[in-house]
Design a protein around this nucleic acid. Structure first.
Lengths: 144, 144
DNA sequence: CTTCGTGCAAAGTTTTTGCATATGA
DNA sequence: TCATATGCAAAAACTTTGCACGAAG
């Protein structure tokens, strides 16, 4: 979160962003504070269910949306899946078509906005490389 | 389809790609042959339903998958939606966060594959610019 | 005490699957 | 004829919504 890899107290982080620090949120923040930094809502739900067996999907989605709004995570989409990324700095991604692994890459050189959309209000840009990660490549997997 | 803007006989196109030319497929090919070139499965379903009231989602999905496999269209994802693109040449996209409009852009300069993924088998790359199209920008819309 | 978060349950979307019938080549 | 497409129906996966209770501040 916020690209800090050192320890951050989830409770304090929530409070400084004006969010109530419930046990569920502290736990979700704890997940997002560590690597891997790319999780789907389902990933979070499964992890959280171990510690909070009665937690609801609703709580996961609402909490992730709050975190996003507070700027603590970024939401993006790869291959139809929603992914939350605790690395909020501008960067590109590589995505393994077989195992779904996501890897951060430095952002491409900033290029000027294409002339076709100079009349747009451009907010962001995303670049994704698709392929097979070394493990899946080695396994000879032939993805769809 | 195949970046041809001139008229192409959907029937012949299907046959030359080894696909049976059913009325449904001919009609779907007809949709994809014209602009706008970006459609979701739901778009296709709604359009097709007018002419084939009993057509099923199943047929839409299977047909689009066949077209994709034949190389007649490309499938990609923007903001969590599946989009089929009849422009199969390499290119980038701009996406309006408010109205969902998709615009083709020339592809970015081909850059060398990032060194972090030189051990991957890279298959493709996608770049999307997000923002507000001129109409939505003018309307003062403030998207999420 | 008051607001906000949570759990529960239901519904909405999108996509996939299974199978019997229909049809193009 | 016969492999393949289609329609129908159900299921699966993901996400959103509404509401009453409970907990944080």
């Amino acid at each position: 979160m916020e690209n800090r890899h050192e320890f951050i107290d989830p409770y304090a982080l929530l409070r400084t962003h004006g969010m109530r620090a419930t046990p569920q949120r502290v736990a979700i923040a704890g997940i997002l504070l560590r690597r891997p930094m790319h999780v789907t809502p389902q990933d979070v739900y499964e992890t959280m269910s171990k510690r909070f067996p009665s937690i609801s999907q609703n709580t996961i989605y609402l909490t992730l949306a709050h975190f996003e709004e507070a700027g603590l995570v970024h939401r993006f989409h790869i291959s139809g899946r929603t992914v939350f990324d605790s690395n909020t700095a501008r960067h590109d991604h590589a995505y393994c078509r077989h195992c779904g692994k996501v890897v951060d890459l430095p952002s491409s050189d900033i290029e000027k906005i294409p002339k076709q959309i100079t009349s747009w209000k451009v907010k962001s840009e995303s670049r994704i490389w698709f392929g097979l990660c070394p493990a899946c490549k080695k396994a000879g997997v032939i993805p769809g």
